[in-house]
Design a protein around this nucleic acid. Structure first.
Lengths: 215, 215
DNA sequence: TAGATTGTTAATCGATTAACAATC
DNA sequence: TAGATTGTTAATCGATTAACAATC
């Protein structure tokens, strides 16, 4: 079997975004070379990625942008609106509910759940409901994707409630590794880790520079 | 020169976090094997990572947890508090300012900057100041790390203001690639991309399952 | 000492890049 | 047709894993 690694799928998203920009500029077809430039990879990488997903172009004619966008949208599940729930109506959960960027990507946060009665609000545009109601809601609406925005201590339990309700993919903002149920995927967004990593590289660059002047 | 890749540095953070947990459980020393279990890698990976950074243990005696934490903290720049600024006092910027998780990692958001006068607030525990004041503030306080939490259209300009003020590392929440200044690092947190990627894998798993039953 | 663990070297694995035949 | 571009195969590169000598 052919291996389609995670980076490859991430690149598909980037190609898709670049294609939208190129289309907006009036382009109708594109070569692997153009797309490579737009995304910052090599053209052979583009062609390789496409061939892994069975996406073909025309020898000497490149790729039709519209058809290409459609194929990528299909692969990435963007041909239908994706409903997502959030667990945790704290600062991050609330920011995500209010964030406008998801809409244009066909992603809609349809509800938030919390255990704190003070945070509940049925009448919000995106309702904030008691965690008890999660299971029924998710089953009813056949939701597959959830976001964890609770404190780390509550995260594993939140994950288990979500898995038992039928959620298959989690985006986890709690700074800890969660155990995934069979057949489920977890992507982690660990802000502390990102900043810590950034600090390391800034320090390294800084030391390299000081070293350069000193030597 | 030895290559210390990005994954390796991320693992150092994970080792450090695992060591804190082990220490809290009363352990004083640890073997590469234990640490590997705790983080979910192989013991040879742990020893390799340590050797890349010149961290040694005792043959047959493992590693002293306290000494190891100290070395990792030193490498990761955690021996001093790291001051960070945020640009953009929107939903995400505000959530980050209120987020409690950074403190225990020695990361402190010291100010936020925005162009919208309505968002300014000098008297906040974390003041929200006009973008005009960023440069002086950053130079004065010798801040090296910044977070971009503005809409994508404003992100590149925000980055340039920050670079020109002396910021060397950016955590970028705007869903677009930014051009980094020489000697600067950018880590991207692209929420749309994370969700899109998650949706792909959930669909793949789902199709695989249906396939399994159908065949 | 015997047994266990490190530190390093060699082997493997997987992803990226280069090369080029096919062909439009 | 000649030239350009795809699609695929082979080469390279880098990271992970395995193996094992050194040694506590």
């Amino acid at each position: 079997m052919v291996t389609t690694n995670k980076n490859c799928v991430l690149r598909l998203s980037r190609y898709k975004n670049a294609l939208h920009r190129l289309k907006a500029l009036g382009f109708v077809k594109v070569f692997s070379d153009n797309l490579a430039d737009a995304v910052g990879v090599l053209s052979s990488q583009v062609r390789k990625d496409f061939s892994l997903f069975g996406i073909g172009g025309n020898k000497r004619g490149g790729y039709q942008i519209d058809a290409l966008i459609e194929k990528l949208n299909n692969i990435l599940g963007k041909d239908q609106q994706q409903k997502v729930i959030v667990v945790g109506a704290g600062h991050i959960g609330t920011a995500l509910m209010k964030y406008k960027g998801f809409e244009k990507e066909g992603i809609k946060i349809v509800a938030c759940f919390d255990i704190d009665p003070a945070k509940l609000n049925k009448n919000n545009p995106i309702p904030v409901l008691p965690l008890d109601e999660l299971k029924e809601f998710v089953k009813d609406k056949d939701i597959k994707i959830g976001i964890i925005a609770v404190p780390d201590i509550a995260a594993q339990q939140a994950a288990e409630v979500m898995f038992s309700a039928g959620i298959k993919g989690l985006l986890n903002f709690a700074p800890m590794r969660l155990k995934a149920a069979e057949d489920c995927v977890i992507n982690n967004v660990n802000l502390e880790l990102e900043l810590e990593n950034l600090i390391y590289y800034v320090n390294v660059l800084n030391k390299a520079k000081i070293g350069k002047f000193a030597v």
